[in-house]
Design a binder for these strands. Sequence first.
DNA 1: CTATAAAATGACTGTTGGTCAGTAAGTGAC
DNA 2: GTCACTTACTGACCAACAGTCATTTTATAG
Lengths: 225, 225
Amino acid sequence: MGTTERKKREKRQRRDTIIDAAEKIIFSKGLDQATMTEIAKEAELSKGTLYLYFKNKNELYMAITKRGSNILNQKLVKIFSGDHTGIELIRLMGETYLTFVRDNPGYFNAFLHYDSLRDTEDLQNSEIAQICEGNKQEAMALMVRALQIGIQDGTIKSSYNPKELAVIIWASTRGITMINHTMRQTDHHFKMIEDMEVNTDSMFENFLNLVGEGMATKKGQKKYD
Amino acid sequence: MGTTERKKREKRQRRDTIIDAAEKIIFSKGLDQATMTEIAKEAELSKGTLYLYFKNKNELYMAITKRGSNILNQKLVKIFSGDHTGIELIRLMGETYLTFVRDNPGYFNAFLHYDSLRDTEDLQNSEIAQICEGNKQEAMALMVRALQIGIQDGTIKSSYNPKELAVIIWASTRGITMINHTMRQTDHHFKMIEDMEVNTDSMFENFLNLVGEGMATKKGQKKYD
DNA sequence: CTATAAAATGACTGTTGGTCAGTAAGTGAC
DNA sequence: GTCACTTACTGACCAACAGTCATTTTATAG
């Protein structure tokens, strides 16, 4: 009989329930203010049970990171199923990232926290961390692929090393996303520049136009005029 | 007699001693692993005394953020005393930032933590936070000034709004710095891209060349060939 | 030397992450 | 139905730590 199967499924569901509860609490109050007891209560379980499914609070938060990066990567992969030139792919990836972070600031906080972990020992022994790492690498690989496509179809200059360029574009996009995110999170209370509310919506657009002039070929730039 | 003066000076010194101790402990173990008792011990004081000088652990960490941003801004301001074109100033600012973060990863962690704070109430009521905020704005203002100088001296295209451009350049530079920082912190254990150790040293250089083509005039680009 | 103020202390409290001995629920054999 | 056994869950408990405050120590001035 499929008892074993059912048990496994139920266990996965419990796990998901816990992650759901953790997201709800942590996203609303922040990691520090969220307590394991409260998360347990939200999941209608006792605190002890949480520790049967997750080694500790950090690992639970990493499970959220994993879930977030899975969702993001799914969106990124989907872009490639459409019929786009290389430069268009770059733009779409950036916009997708920006939109994802805007709609899911909690996940982005989880990403940032994940990146701030330093205990290499712990990270390497954690299965979840390995998957998070894999997702990061996959996103980067997609960007490389977009650039290679662009070089192939002539929308991106062939003088660049796609891997090097990918890292730069990705890093810059993240930087812009972060400013965006931080400003939203602090409720626009602190302004970056006196007498100027930066239009966060157009920032990535402007960035692409700026970088586009260096990166794209004439053919690749046409789209932006 | 100057007793009052001396007392004030001694109080400042105590404060600095505590910050010194806090840096030593927090930079080496990370904020979470550092305890107030240990910091007190390092400062040769008792825990209670720490709370006479700082409202709580977070405010102490913010004092570190303040100190770090003061040091960084000092370096940034100094750049402007030299005889440089606008585009050169941009490059120098980026390089200064990158070098600062490389040499002082602890301060950068403090910056990141500061940016992640969300409790706007607390932030606004904190004198230290106000100064940190002022430093951020000052750095941004310097970047705007560099761009304005560049537009004036013809090394930067006049078609851009210097304020908008400043935010983009600053954000991108931060993004690149962050990747750099994260990779160093995790001891290069996780690679970004398969079969490729990204040369972190040349990343900003490449970024500037890329952006330079969009931002700089012909005259401004000459320097980079 | 004494009175007063300022500075420093560390025992104490409340909270929280994490543990584990004990309990409950589920499963399969008979 | 019930017994033996396994798996899942519980919450009292512990240790560690941030933050407090009554008390002690030190400095100052008359």
